[in-house]
Design a protein around this nucleic acid. Structure first.
Lengths: 219, 219
DNA sequence: ATTATCTATAGATCTATAGATAATGC
DNA sequence: ATTATCTATAGATCTATAGATAATGC
């Protein structure tokens, strides 16, 4: 603590040594698979193909290394929300595309939800990272969605639903579909080779579900 | 392995010594909070107020102790599905009650979903336990639900939906509501004291959502 | 001079067991 | 005799750092 550390500046990506990068990649895999507590810095170094001391040379502590991985993953999660918006198309089609894109993102990053959820229970620091990165993005998306919804509601083409509720339903079903895939396949007795078909079917079903909600009878 | 163990029969609950029970209770708390990998037998013994050797005397290995906790939790989860059924009431009301009861169960056991999901990724033994305990229960529930649904569909009072999809939607939303509560509260900017109100509102919303699906226009 | 790398090791834990001793049930 | 409990310790790890040495950039 009271000694000068030989650590390199890791905030600017210019110092992207192969060793350092190898450690980061290995850390990403290990942390995503086992979580902070169960991951071992020795295993990370082994996977990166470097001596264990190098890990501490570049990242000083396990916590420090983890935080960088965590931050990056939260950022990835946030970006997945923004990319949906923007294109010009009919409202319902946009919703359809958006829900599908979010589903596909999760299917491509199946460990992400469990990783995040696991690490934020009981750790307020990490929750804070979530808040800082996700909140602005989330607010923006909800606001835009609500505006678009209001226009449609006024014109009478969709039922009066709140953007927040719709978003929660959508995220719930998508995240849980990926999160519970191992159990769901067990319970629905789906074989490994039918995995993708099963996912595709569920995706279709979720989109239907969201659309059904929008087309519900107006009260 | 090749020596006689002094371990007591733990399959019959008659040997419910205070020490043994204390260890089990402590283990339940530790494992639920930290997961298998991060939980320490030393911490469990400390929490139980017994010497660490006692833990190994009664349960021999950490794995063994964990498996007993895990089995019990899966059983609890399974039971939560069966208790819903049975009572006599109109179909829609039954659904409403069922969804609400499932939600309440999860709200009362908020760590259960993450605990189970975390432990079954990458561990086929534990997944097997899930399958054995949950599959028969799940099949039974789906079958009953589908029968009830078919009757209603035939009489034209509800839209043609599959019991499996309906079940998945319901479980998704309920589980995710509890699982994501910390993040959701962050994103929806809910204060700690409004937690219960927030949950109650979400519960109501999920029930509505399920009912909406049932009342959708028949095609 | 600074940066990168290796060897070696300190210092904490953690799981698990051995072996002694006390308490309990016939 | 059997069951329960304690003390002590073996044997693995795990995180982190010290200190030597090689490579690199002025």
């Amino acid at each position: 603590m009271n000694k000068t550390t030989r650590q390199v500046d890791t905030t600017t990506p210019q110092a992207d040594t192969t060793t350092q990068q190898a450690i980061m990649s290995a850390a990403e895999i290990e942390f995503m698979e086992k979580g902070f507590a169960a991951a071992k810095t020795t295993a990370i170094a082994r996977r990166a193909g470097v001596t264990h001391a190098m890990l501490h040379y570049y990242y000083r502590t396990k916590e420090n290394l983890f935080n960088q991985v965590f931050q990056a993953k939260i950022q990835l999660l946030a970006d997945s929300f923004t990319t949906i918006l923007g294109r010009e198309m009919p409202f319902l089609e946009k919703i359809e595309q958006g829900v599908g894109a979010h589903f596909d993102f999760l299917a491509a990053n199946p460990r992400l939800p469990l990783f995040v959820l696991r690490e934020i229970v009981d750790n307020s620091d990490r929750r804070e990272v979530c808040r800082e990165v996700l909140l602005p993005v989330f607010k923006g998306v909800i606001e835009k969605l609500q505006k678009a919804l209001n226009a449609e509601i006024e014109s009478g083409s969709v039922a009066p639903v709140s953007a927040m509720d719709m978003m929660l339903n959508m995220v719930s079903m998508n995240v849980f579909a990926i999160l519970s895939l191992p159990v769901a396949m067990l319970l629905a007795e789906v074989k490994e080779e039918d995995r993708d078909r099963f996912l595709e079917r569920r995706k279709r079903q979720i989109i239907e579900q969201v659309l059904t909600q929008l087309k519900a009878e107006k009260r």
